[in-house]
Nucleic acid binder design. Sequence first.
DNA 1: GGTGGCACTTGATGTAGGTTAAGAAATGGT
DNA 2: ACCATTTCTTAACCTACATCAAGTGCCACC
Lengths: 194, 194
Amino acid sequence: MPLDLILNNLEKHIHLTREEQEIFTAYLQPKKVKRKQFLLTYGEVCKYSAFVTSGCLRGYTVDKSGIEHVLSFAPADWWIADMYSLISQKPGIQNIEALEDTDVLLLSKANQEKLYTQIPKFEHFFRILTENSLVASQQRLIDSLSLTAEERYNNFCKRYPTLIDHLPQKQIASYIGVTPEFFSRMKSVIVRKK
Amino acid sequence: MPLDLILNNLEKHIHLTREEQEIFTAYLQPKKVKRKQFLLTYGEVCKYSAFVTSGCLRGYTVDKSGIEHVLSFAPADWWIADMYSLISQKPGIQNIEALEDTDVLLLSKANQEKLYTQIPKFEHFFRILTENSLVASQQRLIDSLSLTAEERYNNFCKRYPTLIDHLPQKQIASYIGVTPEFFSRMKSVIVRKK
DNA sequence: GGTGGCACTTGATGTAGGTTAAGAAATGGT
DNA sequence: ACCATTTCTTAACCTACATCAAGTGCCACC
């Protein structure tokens, strides 16, 4: 049951009564996104936080020379949204695309805000979730400023071991911030070292 | 009165009663940090969120080859902390140093957590503050992945016009992610263009 | 009112990673 | 099971930025 997954996800930080669980789940909206389809596209206003119950999404931006930069992967049990757009309700900068057939549970911004007032524990939950994202984002910035591509790749392997052999390597290249060509070269150098 | 500054800062997102203001301000601890002195150093556990009432701080990390990377500037009316360490209560990765004589108000992690339960509005406030930091951090990551040094410099000028002529330029170089030498050259090229 | 240190500049040279191109391998839709 | 498309590899050349080095201007403080 996909609802178990999201309820367990919440339990990592807050405890809900049976009733509160029911209020919460009533706010959720299941959705399927087929491989290569989009949950959100550039320029659109982001109206939902999405929780992935199966499959995998990627959030990315496209720069002015057309190069894609992967900002996050969201496999099962992860939350994803274009935070800039969700907060400001202005046109967003991210595309969120399914890397494989994916099931999500959508929580609309309006419902999320209702939860904050109805059940303050949710404000607590999302504060913690946001804090953790902030730390991860800062760490990634530090890494991109101070590590080589190879070191960033090693970090990626350590942090997301399940994703590694699961993802087309151009997506990993984009996440660590190099071209697919350079990534390929780098990998063959790493292999030769061993 | 420095308390007015912080109370106004809160008013941007939440409204407090007179009593709540008093509870809050009783939790604060004023501190002076002289130029070149540290509010926090690498390896130390971060126990406070700091709000700057006058002067300016910088938060930075030092990589393994000894290069400093400025993560944030905190002029008056800004909050600063090593979020990684504050959240995890593990030894931190940032140095927070005064660029000039600076006055801060410290809010301990323990007091901050008391506020969350005593006055839930504070959970709301810090959730929003964290969300905004997250968006800023993500944007900076996107910029570092997709813009040239010159474009990042232009963004910096637009976003922090007051800091520009106020800060030693090697600090700006470090923030935008280039060496002081390259920054100097870049600036002279920009001037020549006009 | 020197002088020691720091911030800034300028030049020569080095390098991590990008670009372009072309072929080989893998994959997925029908 | 096949073809079309996408993904991966390899190679030659290019560029943004780093490194090293030497020199200039500027306070600050004894």
